[in-house]
Design a protein around this nucleic acid. Structure first.
Length: 355
DNA sequence: TTCCCGGACA
DNA sequence: TGTCCGGGAA
C-alpha cells in the first residue's frame, strides 16, 4: 500500500468512526436495508431537505407499503401524495420505476448500482446510494453535499459548471472510497451527514469536523469558497391571472398537462392577464374580486400570479356550460381537496381564503 | 423581501 | 444545456 493509499484509507476510516459516533442514525429510512424504502427516501431527498421529506415519507409508505402497491396505484394518487414536494417529474418517474421493478425484475429491485441506474428517475448518484446502503456495494455517490465536502477537504477549485471538472470530481470520489469490506455504508452516510450538519454551505462548523486538521479549504481560511460553480441564470418573468371560482363549498380546478410546470397537478384556471380574465367573467357571472399579486419562483422563471375571486350562486347554470372551455376542469368540494395534488402556492392560496 | 440551495432527463 | 419547485437563511 502506497503512502497515498494509506492516507486515503485513514481519511475514510476517520469519517466512518465519526459517522458511528456523531452521525445521524434515527432517520425513518435508516433502520432498514429494504431497497424500496431506501430508494423512496433517496428520490424524495433529491433537491429536497430532510426536514421537508420527513413530512411526506411515512405518509407515503403507509399508503404504498411496498413496490407492488405503488406500481398498482393510479398516477393521480401518487401525485396527490407528492403534492408540495416539488419537482413532480420525480413522482412520475417513481411510479414508472415501481412498474418497471414489478414487470422487469419480478418485484425485487436489482442489486447493483449499474442495474439500478437503468431504472427511471435513478441516476448515477441515487443508484450508488441505494447500492451502498442496501447491498454494501463499494461505489461512490456525488450529490450536492458530497461535492461541497470533497471539494473543501481536498481544495478542489475547478469550476463544477464544467463537465470535465465534474467528471474529475467523480473520479476523486471513487478514489476516496474506503477499502473493500470496510464500511462503505457508514462512509456514504458519513459524507451525507457531514455535508448536512457540519460542512454546511454557509458558516460551516469546522471545529466539529473529523477532517479539520487536514482540510485544505479550512487551512486557506475560506471554506465557503468551495465548491466553485459559475452560474449565470437569468430568470425570465411571466405573469398569469388565476380564476378562483367558487360555488358553495367547492372550487373549480383544472389539471395541468403532463409536461411543463406543475405537470399533472391541479390548479386554478389560468389567463394571460387580469383584463382577459375579467372579460371572460363579464360575459357570465360579472366581475371578480382582484387579489394581491404574489410571485412564485422557479429555477428559470419568476411567476407573478394574481388571483381573481368570484363566487357563483349555488344553482347557477354558469357552473356548467361555460366551463367546458376547460376540458379537464371539475368542481372540487373542500373535503376532496386532499385527493388532488395542488402546487404549494395554490394550496396556500386556497387555505388562506374563504371556501 | 431577496438569495441560495439542490439530480435527472430531454 | 435548459427545465423542473419549495423551503430556509440572510
Amino acid at each position: 500500500m502506497s503512502r497515498d493509499d494509506a492516507a486515503t484509507a485513514a481519511l475514510a476510516r476517520r469519517l466512518i468512526d465519526w459517522q458511528r459516533q456523531h452521525g445521524r442514525h434515527t432517520l425513518p429510512w435508516q433502520q432498514t436495508r429494504d431497497p424500496y424504502r431506501v430508494w423512496l427516501s433517496e428520490i424524495m431527498l433529491q433537491q429536497t431537505q430532510v426536514s421537508t421529506v420527513l413530512g411526506y415519507y411515512d405518509r407515503f409508505l403507509t399508503r404504498f407499503p411496498d413496490v407492488q402497491a405503488l406500481a398498482a396505484a393510479p398516477l393521480d394518487e401518487v401525485l396527490a401524495l407528492w403534492a408540495g414536494l416539488g419537482y413532480y417529474s420525480r413522482a412520475r418517474n417513481l411510479h414508472r420505476c415501481a412498474q418497471a421493478v414489478v414487470q422487469d425484475w419480478g418485484g425485487a429491485f436489482p442489486s447493483t448500482a449499474a442495474q439500478l441506474a437503468t431504472l427511471p428517475g435513478i441516476g448515477r448518484s441515487t443508484s450508488a446510494a441505494v447500492a451502498a446502503f442496501c447491498f454494501g456495494e463499494r461505489v461512490a455517490i456525488l450529490d450536492g453535499n458530497v461535492k461541497r465536502v470533497l471539494s473543501r477537504v481536498l481544495g478542489f477549485g475547478e469550476d463544477l459548471a464544467q463537465t470535465a471538472a465534474e467528471r474529475r470530481l467523480w473520479d476523486i470520489a471513487e478514489a476516496q472510497l474506503p477499502p473493500a469490506g470496510e464500511g462503505v455504508e457508514a462512509y456514504t452516510q458519513g459524507l451525507m451527514d457531514l455535508g448536512a450538519t457540519v460542512c454546511t454551505p454557509r458558516q460551516p462548523s469546522c471545529l466539529l469536523c473529523p477532517w479539520q486538521d487536514l482540510c485544505v479549504a479550512r487551512r486557506e481560511g475560506r471554506p465557503e469558497a468551495y465548491p466553485v460553480k459559475t452560474r449565470k441564470l437569468k430568470r425570465g418573468r411571466r405573469s398569469h391571472a388565476l380564476l378562483w371560482l367558487t360555488q358553495g363549498d367547492a372550487v373549480f380546478l383544472v389539471q395541468k398537462p403532463a409536461t411543463g410546470v406543475w405537470a399533472g397537478l391541479w390548479t386554478l384556471p389560468e389567463f394571460d392577464d387580469v383584463d382577459s380574465l375579467q372579460a371572460w367573467l363579464a360575459e357570465g357571472p360579472g366581475p371578480g374580486e382582484v387579489g394581491a399579486t404574489f410571485t412564485h419562483v422557479l429555477t428559470h422563471l419568476d411567476l407573478a400570479l394574481t388571483p381573481v375571486r368570484r363566487a357563483l350562486p349555488v344553482d347557477s347554470p354558469l357552473a356548467q356550460g361555460p366551463l367546458l372551455r376547460w376540458p379537464t376542469g371539475r368542481w372540487v368540494p373542500r373535503a376532496a381537496l386532499a385527493e388532488h395534488g395542488l402546487p404549494a402556492p395554490v394550496r396556500k392560496l386556497l387555505d388562506a381564503g374563504p371556501t
